[in-house]
């Protein structure tokens, strides 16, 4: 399998006033074409920062990101981001119009995209909802539509930043099954950020563990698809991943100057 995404020596430092905060430091990894990889780690570990660097929303301080050998410099539809927020669809357009809008911007053609838009809605299980406005949909449906819109511009890489983090357990399970089918059907490569270990195990081929801005390790997922939860292999893998996380992320909550925080709380 060929190498689609290469991340080498990526460092991103945020400057707020005089203080410098490390977002991510010296990150190296590759993603093969068609693979599904997850990035897990506690809040503030830099996983979203890395995703935003790959998307081109953030400039890196050091290192190189390349897609198919070409360096990433700015945002582009070949790497499409799906956010956690339920407000990423354009509220002034219907679902179908949202998709047609995206296709029109990217393909620059005047061709009638309606048929294609409907096909993408059907792909994510939203057939018949093309005429609805985003406010008329549930959270799960909004995220499905966002996935449909992202796929409609035929990206090489889907970047997903806790896309199902705002959903309830039921919609999340349904959307997992739907998304896995869509991933297998389209063959799109996915980099998926989550802090939910089970979600990472259920979905991905490989899990990258982040902590304090650093890549601590990468774990291949040995489970075959479709994944069943009630087998010993699942439970032992879950244990392995969470042990690794516990080890690497012990005490990694980055509280700043705890003494002053305490002093403030005392009054």
């Amino acid at each position: 399998m060929s190498n689609l995404l290469t991340v080498s020596e990526i460092t991103k430092i945020y400057e707020s006033g005089k203080r410098k905060v490390v977002g991510v430091k010296n990150i190296n990894f590759c993603v093969n074409k068609g693979h599904f990889i997850s990035i897990i780690g506690p809040s503030g570990c830099g996983k979203s920062t890395l995703l935003r660097c790959i998307a081109g929303f953030e400039k890196t301080n050091n290192g190189k990101i390349s897609l198919n050998g070409r360096p990433v410099t700015k945002p582009g539809p070949d790497r499409f981001m799906i956010f956690q927020g339920l407000d990423q669809l354009f509220p002034w357009l219907t679902l179908k119009e949202n998709i047609v809008f995206a296709m029109r911007v990217v393909d620059k053609g005047r061709e009638n995209f309606n048929k294609k838009a409907e096909a993408y809605l059907e792909l994510v299980g939203l057939e018949g909802f093309g005429g609805f406005h985003p406010y008329q949909l549930s959270g799960g449906m909004k995220q499905r539509a966002s996935i449909a819109r992202a796929l409609s511009v035929r990206p090489k890489l889907l970047l997903m930043d806790e896309p199902f983090g705002s959903l309830d357990a039921f919609s999340r399970r349904a959307i997992h099954q739907m998304f896995l089918k869509v991933w297998q059907k389209t063959g799109v490569t996915v980099v998926f950020v989550t802090h939910d270990i089970e979600e990472a195990i259920d979905l991905s081929d490989k899990i990258l563990v982040f902590s304090q801005g650093k890549l601590k390790g990468s774990i291949e997922n040995p489970l075959s698809r479709p994944r069943e939860k009630d087998i010993p292999a699942y439970r032992s893998f879950l244990l392995k991943v969470s042990d690794f996380l516990d080890e690497e992320c012990d005490g990694c909550l980055r509280l700043e100057e705890p003494s002053t925080v305490g002093a403030k709380l005392a009054f």
Binding site: P75, G76, P77, R79, F80, Q88, F90, V105, V153
Partner: peptide, 21 residues
């Protein structure tokens, strides 16, 4: 909403086009 702005940028829109669309 930042997400909507970033979806626009993600599609490759910038400057005048991003502002109008």
């Amino acid at each position: 909403p930042v997400n909507q702005l970033e979806v626009g940028r993600n599609l490759g829109l910038a400057g005048w086009e991003l502002a109008m669309k």
